[in-house]
Design a protein around this nucleic acid. Sequence first.
DNA 1: TTGAAAGCGATACCAA
DNA 2: TTGGTATCGCTTTCAA
Lengths: 336, 336
Amino acid sequence: MARATIADVARRAGVSKGLVSLALNDRPGVSAETRTRIQRIAEDMDWRPNPAARGLSAGRAFALGLVVHRERHTVEVDPFFASFIAGVEEALSQDNRVLVLSVVTDADTEAETYRRLSKDRRVDGFLLTDFLTDDHRVALLRELDTPAVILGDPAENIPFPVVSRDYARGVESLLAHLAELGHRRIAHVTGDLQMQHASRRRDHFLTHCRALGLEALIAEADFSPERGAQATVELLDGDHRPTAIVYANDPMAIAGIAVAHERGLNLPADLSVAGMDGSDIGRYTYPSLTTLNNDPAGWGRQAAAVLLELIEQGEAADAALPGADLIIRGSTGAPA
Amino acid sequence: MARATIADVARRAGVSKGLVSLALNDRPGVSAETRTRIQRIAEDMDWRPNPAARGLSAGRAFALGLVVHRERHTVEVDPFFASFIAGVEEALSQDNRVLVLSVVTDADTEAETYRRLSKDRRVDGFLLTDFLTDDHRVALLRELDTPAVILGDPAENIPFPVVSRDYARGVESLLAHLAELGHRRIAHVTGDLQMQHASRRRDHFLTHCRALGLEALIAEADFSPERGAQATVELLDGDHRPTAIVYANDPMAIAGIAVAHERGLNLPADLSVAGMDGSDIGRYTYPSLTTLNNDPAGWGRQAAAVLLELIEQGEAADAALPGADLIIRGSTGAPA
DNA sequence: TTGAAAGCGATACCAA
DNA sequence: TTGGTATCGCTTTCAA
């Protein structure tokens, strides 16, 4: 019942442990014949390398780390992570690696967690989500000398590979769609602008509004439905009331729809609303939510692949996912 | 820069490695004086045990496993896990353990993942969420001889400790609330009835409807907004149209609200709606969602604590979380 | 109470 | 191409 060790395999094959190691790791220095024989025996014995032993010897963990930092009140509303992790999984399990996940609710614990996982060699590298405009984790991970891959589109030059996804075109399609419907004054409720993808989205919004000759309003929020609702109230009460509001994510858009309904507005006639997450729940709101599609599993797969390459090869190229596309549903229409 | 090893500590303390090990693990056989001296030196050198070495020697991983099985289309809508994991974290980090998370989208991969994590000793035990009425994982984990803790309230006698939370009282409060408002015919849209907490909730619903003299309708769904919407359509189209619908989770309730709005119903006058998740987004729908509260972080903390005790002590008692309470918001009112 | 040494299961180097 | 052996950092056993 106890798992076979490399010594068992060696004994049964009548060779040394070292040779078995070479054979099973596809490394040169073993005759083809011996290699296949050893491999067959190992398979036969259902041998699998012990990660602890391997890790101790090789100084590696065969694990990737993901540290998610969420404020307590924001922690639950994230349609992104489950699919993202499922995507990561696809890249890892073949290779017998695992994902170590930590969810922390304050910045000190966050830094400490990166330190601990890295110094204890619990992971070989990190996936960096929710990248900030001036992200302290870059310096931290350089100090720790730990590989990482960044999800996003940093402005600065970063010493880590980046996996990005173009939102410019998606935002442009969305604004063109609204313009075509007849909207002229459009608002954007931002995410937490410390986050790089939030500020990017705002920039895209402003750029393409200008290009399309639209009047642009900005209301700052932080991705939480609470702040999204609050920003909506401000916009609807303001002097320059927009006919359409584009939210940086879907939960805020859903909260915005609620605020509009509460005021007796008819959607989309009195107000058009759009999100940017492509979340599934947006298909089942009323009206259903126009949004940009998303591919969390794709993010996960790609990010994990790049990180693994960085860990294995010492370097890895940036990668880009297919850009965001517009999903038109019921929440956008011609203004009354 | 390289981390201090136990040998470094031993050298500096002028004792043997074995003694250091005893001292730092709070085990008997070291004089109090020597122990504190060693501990001070270790702290001074910022020594931390290497998990790989420890794991290899002790045959343990110092990690807990969580395998989440979700269908592709359900994978994103879960307000539960982020907070849950944050709670688990609180119980783990002090002790220098980690959580290994896997998200899988089919049953074969699920079983294989449990096998792999257990046999490779990547984890010392599992947290079993979404427990099924007749859960195949029980047999699997017995076969693997791996500790586990169950979240839920299994009917059968299970060879693992259980962390449970009473929903009977919450469901009762909810139904009493509706009865008091004047509702007489109330429907319940169920979760996936294979899941033990879904069937429990249905049972509570039926029991307390009977006790309160309410007419009860059941529409079967699976926790997904899609099926929740579909069930709502059926209920509203049926001959015995209810004046209130209680959904087994909040995402389905949100989808139900959308269906009602689409038909021009006024909520709550034409239809009262309630969820059972206490999700944050439910505060920002229109109308805001009456629901039962939840404590995912509490689940995580408690489940991790019980599992750690089981791993350390070889046995652990069941635990119960404080019961669910009713949160009355705008989506329930007197029928017109 | 303490020290010395033998594992745990792999990798890696040096000889043969 | 192969075998033998040291090594990774810790725990544990056996003597002293």
